[in-house]
Computed example of a mutant assay.
Amino acid sequence: MQATTAADLFAAPRFRPGVQLIEEHNGLTLDYREQSCSVVADSQGALKAFVDSLRRGDTSTAELKRRHPELASEIDGLLEEFDRLGLLTESAFPTPQGCLSGEEFYHRLRKFAAETIEANSKSRLYLGLCDRTLPKSALIGYALEYFYIVREAPGLIAPSLAHAEPVKVQKLLQGFLASELNHDDMLRESLHAVSIRTDNLDYLVPLPATFALCASLGVYARQHPLSFKSLLFLFEQPSVSFHIELANYCRETGIPEGFWRPIARHSTINDEFDHEDISLSLLAEIEAISPEEQMTVKKHVMLAIETMVLQENQILDFYGRQSVVKPRIFA
């Protein structure tokens, strides 16, 4: 899928307070919190003018390119690197009115995620189900990776309870955690139905993208609660068409009902607990989200979507080539 750059997410980038600019004979050095980077340019005057614009802020990326034509082709790359180093923030532009209520932000975030998925990614796994070209081994591999996420879910949610939150939010998080307990038992049944040993699945090693999804969610739960609350809908939104195609695929290819039924049942349980709306329920308790925090969450949503696409590709590339599925257990 096409990656989203820092330039796409900043309305008007500027340097954070505290960034120090030091002129060198062939460029500039930027210092911030005991880290630094050097920027070299053919025209030091053009570079200095661009950096001055970033120091002032209140200028859109498009305007920066018009204002500094000599660097126009390099500006996206410079902004992305400055952002990676933590040197940039959002300007006061368009104004403090850029703050959104948690509920309004949720609806905009859902639209942002849907447009991103529609424009930049096609589910190879879902398309393979629909046209019946998906290898059986890849489908079992999907169930193994899904099992890992479901098994780890309570431990990933738990750190979110460590924050000082209003009682209503604490209750929502506690209920969400409780509703995820022991769901891995259903997925064990599913895997057992296709002759996967389940007595050693506690030692299952996930694919890198699956591990990255779990690790990022756990980190957000502990270190950035807003991102954690905002991303949950990506993991919990129902996929009715997927489960219909899953059942049809299994019936037509002779995969036993004991495999697909527990997967569908787990999805039904999520619907009963209104898991799709857990993000809305949590964000609705937030009165205002600043433009910078909105941008941070959008980055994390974009990263999660990209990782989910990568996960599907890894499932197809690793499991799809096996004649007999071998879980990643290296004990």
Rank of each mutant, 00 (worst) to 15 (best):
G86H: 10
A288S: 13
E24F: 02
E115R: 09
R188N: 01
M295L: 15
T198E: 13
A158D: 12
T95V: 06
F273N: 09
E74C: 07
S227V: 01
F50A: 03
Q35S: 12
R151V: 00
H183Y: 09
N313H: 12
F105N: 08
P291S: 05
R188Q: 10
A221L: 03
E189Q: 13
L54P: 02
L88I: 06
V169P: 00
S267W: 00
Y220M: 04
S179R: 04
E236L: 02
L282C: 14
A12E: 00
C130K: 15
E292T: 11
A119S: 15
T296P: 09
P327T: 14
F318M: 00
K168F: 06
Y142I: 04
N313P: 02
V150F: 00
L191M: 05
A193F: 12
N120W: 02
I329Y: 14
V297F: 08
S267H: 08
N120L: 04
L9Y: 02
V194G: 04
P154H: 05
A143K: 07
I255P: 04
K111V: 10
I286T: 15
I244M: 11
L232G: 07
F259H: 01
L207G: 00
L134Y: 04
S60W: 03
S91V: 03
L181W: 12
E70V: 10
P159R: 09
E236A: 06
R33Y: 03
F259A: 05
I196S: 12
L30I: 00
E236N: 10
D317T: 03
E23Y: 00
F318N: 08
H275S: 07
E165P: 00
G218S: 01
H192R: 13
E189P: 00
F330H: 15
R188L: 13
N313G: 14
I157P: 09
K326M: 09
H266V: 04
I22E: 11
E81H: 10
R222Q: 13
E252L: 12
T307R: 06
R188I: 03
G45H: 06
R84G: 11
A49F: 07
I75W: 06
P238Q: 06
R66V: 01
E165T: 11
A284F: 01
S91C: 01
E118D: 14
R328Q: 11
T210H: 05
E34R: 05
A331G: 14
D202Q: 14
I157W: 13
N313M: 09
A212K: 14
V39Y: 01
Q322T: 06
L187E: 07
H300W: 10
E34N: 12
Q97W: 14
E293I: 10
Q2D: 13
L310S: 11
A158M: 14
P96C: 12
N248K: 15
